[in-house]
Every structure is written in structure tokens, then in C-alpha cells.
């Protein structure tokens, strides 16, 4: 599914902003997620104690370059992450705008070239733009991670038509909706569209009950995937009753 790794769960969970590491670990457990992200840019090498706690989750770690605004920063952070976490997986973020946290597609493609050539398995955080997607595949990425909406906004799938087009255009390429998911129904929707996974953080971490919300997302993502695999009925213009009805039911 992702760089020759098959996963049972299609949820990837971010690890920032939880009330405590203990609740974070409980949330991971409840969600069923097998991949968790971890940041390095701000915490630096001295964040070892927290990373040790993440290692207790037995999940595969997907380090990210969150907070990086330039190619050089992102590449340096990725190299450091490979050392620190001992994985070639890297979620590549090159942020273009401090307020919207929108990815900078130009820097992203450039950094992806560098990292893929160094043997990284790059998970690029991108937009739904098809050409950017193609350039990222050309650079060597084997997964694309389009945003649903700006990071932490909880707006869900803001450009539904664009995401549908992207799914159709990149059939066979693993696609993960990353960022902007606020509710389990939105995650289910992404899965029903045929996306291969969902990555989220704030919606769980900042829920009043993060563990309960993590469980809800795990189930919604599974339900959405099962719905997709079972084949959703097409939308119809008119309501049509599934069985003809001739009269009122006698309920006595």
C-alpha cells in the first residue's frame, strides 16, 4: 500500500497537542492506527523522552518536516529525522504560507527530488493540483498526500470536485487525505471517494475526549473504506422506492 508496507488500518494519526502522552497512547490504541507522525523541527534532538514514549506505541513512525518553510530546512530536518527515528519514511511538508499553512508546491517538488534521490520514502503534503502531483511522482514519490483543507481548520474536504478528479487521475497511486479533517463523517467521505487513507491530528487531540474521538475516527474510516469497496450506489435525481407500496401498513 505505502512503499511496500501493507497496513490493516487506513488511519494515520498525528501526535501533537494531546493533553498528555498517556492519553495520546490510549488514543492511538483506540483508533487502531498503525502509523503515527512525529515532528522534530521545534523539539530538536532534546525531545528524546517524548520520542521514547511514541516508540512504546509499537506503531510505525512517520516523521514529518512540519514547520519547515524552505527546501533546505525540510531536507535538513528529513536527514535528521532519519538518524533520530531510524526510518526512511518522511512526511514532507514545505510550508508556503505561515497563516494558511498551505504547501509551497515549488519547494515541495524540489525537496522531493533531493530526498527521493537520497533513498527516502517520501510522503509529500501537497494540494489537489494534478500537475504538482505528476511532478512529485516524477521526482520518485510513490504516495501523494493532498490536503482536505488547511492544517488544523477542521473544514473537511473543501474541494470535493478537485479531490474526485485527483483520485480518478492517479488511479493506482496511493493517495492519503492529509490535513483539514474535523469530523469522522469527513474522514468517511474521503474513504468513500476511494482514497487510500486519512491523516489527521487536531480533530482527535483537541476533542474534549481524545480517546473517544480516536475510536470514532477509526470506525468511520473503516466504514468509509468498506462502503467504497462494496460499491456505492449512484446518486439519482429522484427518490425511487425500493419496493412498491400499495397501502398503509396495518399496525394493530
Amino acid at each position: 500500500m505505502f512503499y511496500d508496507v501493507d497496513l490493516t488500518s487506513r488511519l494515520m494519526l498525528g501526535t501533537a497537542q494531546y493533553p498528555s502522552p498517556k492519553i495520546l497512547l490510549e488514543a492511538i490504541e483506540a483508533s487502531g492506527a498503525e502509523v503515527i507522525t512525529a515532528s522534530l523541527r521545534r523539539e530538536g534532538v532534546a525531545g528524546g523522552a517524548f520520542r521514547d514514549l511514541l516508540a512504546n506505541s509499537r506503531c510505525r513512525l512517520l516523521p514529518n518536516t512540519a514547520g519547515c518553510h524552505t527546501v533546505r530546512e525540510a531536507v535538513t530536518t528529513a536527514r535528521m529525522a532519519r538518524e533520530v527515528f531510524g526510518t526512511s519514511w518522511i512526511k514532507l511538508e514545505v510550508i508556503g504560507h505561515a497563516d494558511t499553512l498551505q504547501p509551497d508546491p515549488f519547494g515541495l517538488v524540489e525537496a522531493a527530488h533531493v530526498l527521493c534521490s537520497e533513498g527516502f520514502d517520501v510522503f509529500p503534503y501537497t494540494t489537489e493540483d494534478l500537475i504538482v502531483g505528476e511532478k512529485l511522482l516524477e521526482a520518485g514519490c510513490k504516495v501523494l498526500m493532498p490536503w482536505g483543507a488547511p492544517i488544523g481548520s477542521g473544514q473537511g474536504l473543501r474541494n470535493l470536485a478537485g479531490l474526485r478528479t485527483m483520485r480518478a487521475h492517479f488511479s493506482g497511486v496511493p493517495l492519503v487525505v492529509d490535513a483539514g479533517i474535523g469530523a469522522p463523517s469527513q474522514a468517511a467521505q474521503a474513504m468513500e471517494l476511494g482514497f487510500d487513507g486519512v491523516l489527521l491530528n487536531t480533530a482527535v487531540a483537541k476533542a474534549v475526549d481524545p480517546v473517544g474521538m480516536a475510536r470514532a475516527f477509526g470506525r468511520a474510516i473503516q466504514a468509509g473504506r468498506e462502503g467504497f469497496e462494496a460499491g456505492l450506489m449512484p446518486e439519482r435525481d429522484m427518490a425511487s422506492a425500493s419496493t412498491p407500496v400499495f397501502g398503509m401498513a396495518e399496525l394493530a
Binding site: R42, E43, G44
Partner: peptide, 13 residues
């Protein structure tokens, strides 16, 4: 609130 044991002064950020 940063998950880090780094001592040293306040960062510009």
C-alpha cells in the same frame, strides 16, 4: 509547551 528537554534561552519564534 514544547516536548523537549532543551535548556537554553527563549527562541525568537
Amino acid at each position: 509547551m514544547v516536548e523537549s528537554a532543551r535548556r537554553g534561552g527563549v527562541t525568537a519564534r
